[in-house]
Structure formats: C-alpha cells, structure tokens
C-alpha cells in the first residue's frame, strides 16, 4: 500500500502561462507530523524531490523538544536564496493518509531562515520512499522502500 496525496490546487489571480492558462497552481503539499521528546507538531510540508535535505523552521525544534545546542551544522542554499545555516537532529516523522501511516526516525535540518513550509526532501524523508509524482493525475504517491526504517 502507498500513501496518496492529491496536489493542493492553489488559486492564482491570473491565468498561468506555463500551465496553458490554468487558474490554479497544483502543489504537492502534504500533512506531516514531527516529534522529538516533547509535544509533536502537525503541519503542512512540501514534497520536494530536488531538495537534498528535509528542512524545518528552527522555531519548531524547541517546541518539539529537540536541543540544537551541540547539533552538527551545515550550509544550505535554494534555487533563489542565499546560503543559510542548518542544524541537524534526529526526529520522528510521520506521513499518513486515510489508509496508511508511516513513522520513522530521520535526520532533518532546522534553519533560522524564513521557511514558510517545511521541505520534505531526500535525506530524512524521500530516501525511504519510492515517490511517484503523477503529473496527469496531480497526485503524489509514496510507497515505502527497502531503506524505510520505521513502523
């Protein structure tokens, strides 16, 4: 069984030229739960097959009970943004739909840079799934692979 997430169809105020004049932007935004030793947080994140890491806002770290004081650090950059510092920690992540629920321990990065939504990238998340982005159906489908370490 796999997780199936219909894309979020976000309305735009003009016809999108690159989508043949549609008035929506389909985006693979999915609910994800992140937990440390404290209270878990449920939020929407964006599946991003081009992101090397899975990244959350640093504000969430303290909230979920993750101490970043001695955390290993790295530098990350986006397509249109400059380098930012990322601090890494192991957390519990959970993806689910109405049929399935997958929970695992993975390394994610936390950044103090403005991050409107978490990025669910390769390390910590997509590495454990075979992910199919059905462009025609506008559905993302995730099936656990042999690397999946969770329950």
């Amino acid at each position: 069984m796999s997780l199936r997430f219909p894309y979020d169809l976000q309305q735009v105020p003009y016809p999108v030229v690159s989508l043949g004049g549609r008035w929506v932007r389909p985006r693979p935004i999915v609910p994800v739960l992140i937990a440390g030793t404290g209270v878990p947080i449920l939020l929407y994140g964006r599946l991003d097959s081009a992101a090397d890491d899975t990244i959350f806002s640093e504000h969430l770290a303290a909230r979920i009970g993750v101490d970043l004081t001695e955390a290993p650090t790295g530098v990350a950059t986006g397509v249109a943004s400059g380098p930012v510092t990322v601090r890494y920690a192991q957390v519990t992540l959970c993806l689910f739909d109405q049929h399935q629920r997958y929970e695992w321990l993975g390394w994610v990065g936390f950044t103090a840079a403005r991050l409107n939504r978490p990025l669910l990238g390769f390390a910590g998340c997509l590495q454990f799934f075979t992910t199919t982005f059905h462009g025609d159906l506008e559905v993302a489908e995730l099936a656990v692979n042999r690397l999946y370490p969770g329950t």
């Binding site: 878990p40 939020l43 409107n116």
Partner: peptide, 11 residues
C-alpha cells in the same frame, strides 16, 4: 498540538 500548521502562499 491540536491544530495543523500551514501557510497561505501569496497567489
């Protein structure tokens, strides 16, 4: 812990 956090993208 009883809500779902999201962000409203500028359209």
């Amino acid at each position: 812990s009883r809500v779902v956090f999201d962000y409203v993208d500028p359209p």
